[in-house]
């Protein structure tokens, strides 16, 4: 019995010592857990951003002209954008509100943009759960340090943009063929995934068989090159009948170089 009493007492003392030790370390453990969880939230937010937001705001949140504003920009985090439309809360609150509720009306700086920010939270009829909204907020807010520290990152080198008057270099139809079919460097946006080259075959978008001929006839004072250029960087400018506007990604202007554009146009002009 004495042995039991002694060992039992030692065990109780040891248990209490462990608990005391845990207690002493709690503040440090709790704060490390907190930052760890924010890190994981950013990870989850990055995945959600990629599937839901990148299509309009750009894969790196750099924004796409005439589609959606930049999110990794200093003016969002230094409060000047918020001030311009009279938001009195914090940047984080604004980001959360804008994602959850959407933006039914654009602010003055983006008045010309045709698309409205949709509602994302299930609480307001959108598709994402409240916790998913929080992950996205954490992901967007994670740009803060970098955005405030430096000028916005340069866009894709020599991106073609959405200005139709921009001068294009001479096109190489052979390389355009590769790009069209998603091959070679720069071939990460295969046109052939949605556009067939066989007459009458609809994959997702319209067939491009004979596009060189029809492109010239589509718009009165547009030559075929200009029409093709516009159709890629501003797809909603002319939508082929029976197809919905917005079906084609609006982001190619920011993702494609001038050379890519010229090569693809050169290739398409061979499809007579």
């Amino acid at each position: 019995m004495t042995v039991r009493v002694v060992i039992g007492t030692i065990l109780i003392a040891a248990t209490m010592a462990i608990v005391a030790f845990v207690m002493v370390n709690e503040p440090a453990r709790m704060s490390s857990f907190e930052s760890g969880f924010t890190g994981r939230s950013v990870e989850a937010g990055a995945a959600l951003f990629d599937t839901n937001c990148a299509i309009c705001h750009g894969v790196a949140g750099q924004g796409i002209e005439n589609v959606a504003p930049a999110l990794n920009a200093a003016d969002l985090f230094d409060g000047s954008r918020l001030k311009s439309f009279g938001w009195s809360g914090t940047v984080k609150d604004y980001v959360r509100a804008a994602i959850a509720g959407g933006r039914p009306r654009a602010s003055a700086a983006f008045a010309g943009y045709p698309n409205r920010m949709p509602t994302w939270s299930q609480q307001y009829g959108g598709p994402l759960r409240p916790d998913q909204i929080e992950y996205l907020v954490d992901f967007v807010m994670n740009w803060q340090t970098a955005a405030l520290a430096q000028a916005p990152p340069p866009p894709v080198v020599d991106a073609v943009g959405t200005d139709l008057n921009t001068a294009l270099p001479a096109g190489d139809a052979a390389r355009g063929d590769l790009l069209f079919h998603g091959k070679g460097p720069g071939g990460q946006f295969p046109c052939s995934a949605c556009h067939s080259l066989q007459a009458g075959q609809t994959l997702v978008g319209p067939s491009l068989a004979g596009i060189a001929t029809s492109a010239a006839a589509r718009k009165p004072d547009y030559p075929a090159e200009k029409y093709l250029h516009e159709s890629v960087v501003l797809p909603n400018a002319y939508v082929v009948e029976t197809f919905n506007p917005g079906l084609m990604p609006q982001t190619f202007g920011a993702q494609m170089t001038r050379q890519d554009m010229a090569d693809i146009i050169a290739f398409l002009l061979t499809q007579k």
Binding site: S35, G36, G39, V42, E43, A44
Partner: peptide
């Protein structure tokens, strides 16, 4: 498959 990994995620 794509995975994101944060510096502070503390797994």
């Amino acid at each position: 498959q794509t995975v994101y990994l944060g510096a502070d995620s503390n797994y």
